[in-house]
Design a protein around this nucleic acid. Structure first.
Lengths: 209, 209
DNA sequence: CGATTTATAGATCATTCGATCAATAGGGTT
DNA sequence: AACCCTATTGATCGAATGATCTATAAATCG
């Protein structure tokens, strides 16, 4: 048996703080994002609650079950992360192709090099989530395919890049984030140089200056 | 959330067959490899047993606990998968560099494009296993760094490739396997062409024919 | 064939997990 | 201050999980 109420020095007095439901919900979702990014989607609701400093039962006052918490995590992580006007900016031929590519991957890398995004994307992918297929399909049709056409338009006659070549460029860059956040091995603090070199090699091999 | 389709091969009268311990253990390990590759390292021992057509208790007659089963899975998946003489073959300058690279990635891709290997590597990486860091460190020092020196030796003066460039080549190729086995999106049935193109672009950009 | 060995199954235990529900208390209103 | 609403807690339930232990039966040997 524990000793009861003998001391005030109990680490956490567990002060009960009453928050507006809106704010509490937001706090839970944000906490859940980093929690599930850390431990995986099979993380336990009790551990999540402890990390948030609330009781486990309170979670089910805001979400009917654990699956709904994870849905909220997905929504928070994925929603509005792909800028709507990337297709336009990538095909704006008043800007040099190299510049378009560099600005795209500079901005996009801020997304994929984010700890929470990368890990939750990988966890959900391994879980077989349809989400990932939809995301990659969107990526292919809305961003990478237009990019392919831009490169074809800029490349001299003989060479003819394919989608798989674009995926190769893309994968080489994404892999930096995988090494950093999944395997947790050292990577350059600032991947800008690596990205620029990859883009330049890619364009150069297709004869695009 | 839960993966369904745990077993389709049910309807077995569960005939009790007595196997030599050696053989039973091997059967369990091989079954555990595909099982954990499918559902992740948090897969339940009862589901594993059901897939194997044995009782759950029998598992603990061969392994003291679940962690030891996963250890055996790691050993089975990782052991002796990196050929010992790759460093030698990659630095054998009597063979054109392009040929060395192509044969290496052709053979290496048979490893990383294997369903079980790729998924268990990703699961264990997400779980923070030291294994993955050791593997990648080994990859870097024993294979990719020598490769960097070969390219430096073959490249004309001004260009000077860095390790991060080699990782970029490597990641672009590995990413095919990630798309196929983790995200489960369509990839070329035979990645040889994509690999050859990636290698040729890479070498070409460093002025190596 | 009968006896012995031991691989295997079945029952079960102690925790842990997601989820429920009644009791409690924070904080705004009057 | 007294009151009310409801956000929050604490206790608890039933199912699931890793692991243990004993009974059973398949193969081997004399």
């Amino acid at each position: 048996m524990d000793q009861t109420s003998s001391d005030i020095a109990a680490a956490e007095p567990a002060e009960r703080r009453r928050l507006p439901p809106e704010e509490r919900r937001r706090q839970i979702v944000e906490g859940a994002v980093t929690f599930f990014a850390d431990v995986g989607l099979e993380g336990k609701t009790r551990d999540l609650a402890k990390r948030l400093g609330i009781t486990q039962s309170l979670l089910f006052n805001y979400f009917v079950n654990k699956a709904e918490i994870i849905e909220a995590v997905y929504a928070h992580v994925y929603l509005d992360r792909l800028s709507e006007d990337w297709p336009r900016r990538l095909t704006d031929r008043s800007v040099p192709l190299r510049d378009r590519l560099l600005t795209f991957y500079t901005e996009y890398s801020q997304l994929i090099f984010e700890y929470e995004w990368m890990r939750i994307f990988m966890f959900s992918g391994l879980a077989g989530a349809e989400l990932n297929r939809r995301y990659l399909h969107h990526m292919g049709t809305v961003i990478l395919h237009p990019l392919l056409e831009e490169i074809r338009a800029a490349a001299p006659a003989p060479v003819d890049p394919q989608m798989e070549d674009i995926w190769n460029l893309h994968g080489g860059i994404v892999y930096i984030g995988i090494r950093r956040h999944i395997y947790q091995v050292p990577t350059p603090d600032d991947p800008s140089d690596a990205i620029a070199h990859a883009v330049d090699r890619f364009l150069g091999s297709f004869g695009v200056v």
